[in-house]
């Protein structure tokens, strides 16, 4: 029952992989909380690219529906994240992640 073409990879997946790697790299090394938030969005969009490509090739709409939901959730996540970061800026006057070290041990 394996479909005739087991070709899963597509060239656009390499683009998605590059985007995801960029996002992951930024997420791990950048110290600015807003840039980290942008890196999360970048990774989510890389996933969207894969889903859109697979959905277009195979012809079921499920992937496209998932993409719409991911975009919506990403917006909500950005709203909550920016709220938290704004709050931290009010408390400390900086958005550098390394400045927040009160909880340790």
């Amino acid at each position: 029952m394996i479909p005739a073409s087991v070709q899963i990879l597509h060239w656009s997946h390499y683009v998605a992989a590059c985007l995801f790697a960029l996002g992951m790299f930024g997420f791990l090394i950048r110290k600015n909380a807003i840039v980290v938030l942008m890196c999360i969005e970048l990774m989510l969009n890389a996933v969207n690219l894969i889903l859109v490509e697979v959905s277009m090739r195979s012809g079921h709409p499920e992937g496209l529906i998932f993409v719409i939901f991911i975009i919506t959730v990403a917006a909500a996540e950005a709203a909550v994240g920016l709220g938290i970061i704004l709050n931290l800026y009010r408390a400390k006057g900086t958005v550098n992640i390394d400045a927040f070290r009160e909880l340790q041990g």
Binding site: G23, I40, A46, V47, G81, I84, E102, L103
Partner: peptide, 25 residues
């Protein structure tokens, strides 16, 4: 303290949800 806790939870949680959608994809 509360803000910092929230930032840490947010960053790890958002990263986890990114990995979740990648796995689903």
């Amino acid at each position: 303290k509360s803000c910092e806790a929230s930032l840490k939870y947010f960053l790890f949680g958002a990263f986890a949800s990114v990995l979740f959608v990648l796995g689903a994809a």
